[in-house]
Amino acid sequence: MTAHLSTSRPPLPPFDHDSALIKVRAAEDGWNGRDPAKVALAYTADSRWRNRDEFLHGRQEIEAFLQRKWQREHDYRLIKELWAYTGNRIAVRFAYEWHDDAGQWYRSYGNENWEFDAQGLMAVRHASINDLAISESARLFHWPQGRRPDEHAGLTQLGL
């Protein structure tokens, strides 16, 4: 059974097109902020994740995972795009760019399936991700660290 917080995380399910877009952008903004503790609050206390080959349970594991992730993925910038929605579920596709300690740049592509509780917290997240080594000159995500500017192209406009 999902543990609930006393506060909600709008927009709440059931989602329509506009509310799903808002939810996707809020998730993108949170991840681009790279604050593991803050990002973890968007998930239920007992949220279940599959991220690549890792299976996580609960905010504490999510926060620890994100700390490890952003310690090794430098200059991280992410774009998410709504793929589909229904009821309390949203599917997104995404790409993010980052480099490792040696300076090798990557573009990571993936898909996520999300399920939300009645308070709008994510209870389930399944992520499938592939990494592609790229040259620094092939990078497409050049905004300053943090939130993607509204005028910056999305995945479809970038041909991704």
Rank of each mutant, 00 (worst) to 15 (best):
residue 30 G to P: 04
residue 140 L to P: 01
residue 128 S to I: 14
residue 156 T to D: 13
residue 120 G to R: 05
residue 20 A to K: 03
residue 41 L to G: 00
residue 52 R to P: 00
residue 73 E to T: 02
residue 53 D to T: 13
residue 150 D to R: 12
residue 67 Q to N: 13
residue 95 A to V: 14
residue 33 G to Y: 03
residue 136 E to K: 11
residue 49 W to C: 05
residue 103 G to S: 10
residue 16 D to W: 08
residue 127 A to N: 09
residue 35 D to T: 04
residue 34 R to P: 01
residue 63 E to P: 10
residue 105 W to V: 03
residue 65 F to W: 15
residue 9 R to C: 13
residue 158 L to P: 01
residue 105 W to E: 01
residue 40 A to E: 01
residue 111 N to M: 13
residue 116 F to K: 03
residue 74 H to V: 07
residue 111 N to K: 02
residue 22 I to W: 05
residue 125 R to M: 14
residue 131 D to L: 07
residue 56 L to P: 06
residue 12 L to Y: 05
residue 92 V to F: 04
residue 136 E to L: 00
residue 47 S to L: 01
residue 39 V to S: 08
residue 28 E to M: 06
residue 50 R to F: 07
residue 125 R to H: 12
residue 2 T to G: 02
residue 16 D to E: 10
residue 138 A to V: 02
residue 29 D to I: 05
residue 65 F to V: 06
residue 158 L to N: 10
residue 8 S to Y: 10
residue 107 R to A: 09
residue 83 W to K: 13
residue 41 L to H: 04
residue 80 K to T: 06
residue 118 A to H: 12
residue 129 I to S: 09
residue 142 H to T: 15
residue 25 R to A: 06
residue 17 H to R: 13
residue 74 H to I: 05
residue 74 H to C: 08
residue 81 E to Q: 15
residue 11 P to L: 02
residue 43 Y to N: 01
residue 85 Y to M: 01
residue 67 Q to T: 11
residue 83 W to E: 15
residue 69 K to I: 12
residue 13 P to T: 12
residue 93 R to N: 12
residue 119 Q to L: 10
residue 113 N to T: 06
residue 29 D to Q: 14
residue 63 E to D: 13
residue 94 F to R: 00
residue 146 G to L: 09
residue 4 H to Q: 14
residue 4 H to N: 11
residue 63 E to W: 03
residue 136 E to I: 08
residue 100 D to I: 11
residue 128 S to H: 08
residue 38 K to R: 15
residue 89 R to T: 14
residue 122 M to C: 07
